[in-house]
Design a protein around this nucleic acid. Structure first.
Lengths: 205, 205
DNA sequence: TAGATTGTTAATCGATTAACAATC
DNA sequence: TAGATTGTTAATCGATTAACAATC
């Protein structure tokens, strides 16, 4: 299957909306509803569902319970979802205690830091010395890391994480990292998003 | 000019890389260099520059000093870059003290919160009651807000911000908000990014 | 049946890439 | 000059949208 990043992202959004509808007592949902909720067309919704083999009824829309089961299977909801946080400064600690993860079955299992005064192996989520990271990642079979380190240490750590077999990195450091076949990297650059927004807000159009 | 969001994002990246080169003593840069740095083709770089009227020399690449001046003009570096943070929980406070903004000339000038125990009008960056927000935004001519509130209060605040004349919202709440002609919205959904990454990391390909 | 909705095929659109001319 | 590089025009590609057939 050759799913694009965008279509997978939409799948996650569908899932979130459908869950909400289910909690409101809905049993069925139409492509029109989902399109409205995501701000896209209903054709796009049907195309996405079709691509992943999610089927509905010609008249009655899509069965919510069925779709949720299918989406969970596609998105791999039943799998191991452990992540580590690399760099336990302010942002790192914020993400370690971020409440939004649990709803998605994501669990931060450890943080790593190079500063000895930051280390706290007995915390609710342990913060360990970055030197212990290779062994930890191997032992615990960690696939995904969140990188929240200062700019100047980011390139080194990106390399190290890749060499440790990490398969995905959510990078908050203000350096542009590139995905490789073995490691998917997503860059979140908050300052750049804002800068970008200032442009659009003031653009002559 | 009909610049896409993506091309503007690339412009910001070019700027960052070129600044770095300048600090290393470089005077000129080639489209090949920039392409490598961003992980894109050199043709794309030249196309982007061409679109915004940035010119180089047939043999000698692009003059760094000239390009920086042009990029700053295009990206509006000289303008007012004040933002407010709406919702001063953990993530809100982290962003209020985020060090990555100053380099881009972005300044968080105030935070707003509904919880009285969170309010601190005399802090380095004041945290005010959310009731004072409409007046503050009007007086200070705030265009852009960062939204870091819980899911259930997000829809209301999104509406309020729009009605107060806010032109851009960087939304960290886990709801999908849609841009309107008067208000550009960027959603940053960290849990969803991770979920997405888990898919790609484990996808059969 | 008529109307509403899914699902697919074809058309469109925009962005990227290829090809190449211009020229330093 | 020859080689390297910019800048533009044409081709390609992928994603979205339109059109419409199928059917509940």
């Amino acid at each position: 299957m050759n799913a694009s990043r965008d279509s997978i992202t939409r799948l996650s959004h569908y899932r979130r909306v459908i869950f909400k509808l289910k909690s409101l007592g809905f049993r069925r949902v139409f492509s029109d509803n989902l399109g409205d909720a995501l701000g896209i067309s209903s054709v796009q919704v049907r195309k996405d569902f079709s691509e992943f083999g999610l089927t509905g009824n010609k008249k009655g829309g899509y069965q919510i319970d069925e779709i949720i089961v299918d989406l969970d299977r596609i998105l791999g909801k039943d799998m191991l979802r452990k992540v580590v946080v690399v760099g336990c400064g302010r942002m790192g600690k914020t993400l370690m205690s971020y409440s939004g993860f649990s709803g998605e079955g994501i669990k931060v299992v450890a943080g790593f830091d190079a500063d000895p005064s930051n280390i706290d192996p007995d915390g609710r989520i342990p913060i360990l010395d970055v030197l212990e990271m290779p062994e930890y990642i191997r032992k615990e079979k960690i696939q995904i890391a969140i990188l929240t380190v200062p700019e100047h240490t980011a390139p080194t750590l990106l390399e190290q994480l890749k060499s440790m077999g990490i398969k995905g990195i959510l990078n908050f450091a203000p350096v542009q990292a590139h995905s490789t076949p073995n490691c998917e990297i997503r860059n979140i650059n908050i300052a750049l998003e804002l800068e970008n927004m200032f442009y659009f807000v003031n653009a002559p159009e």
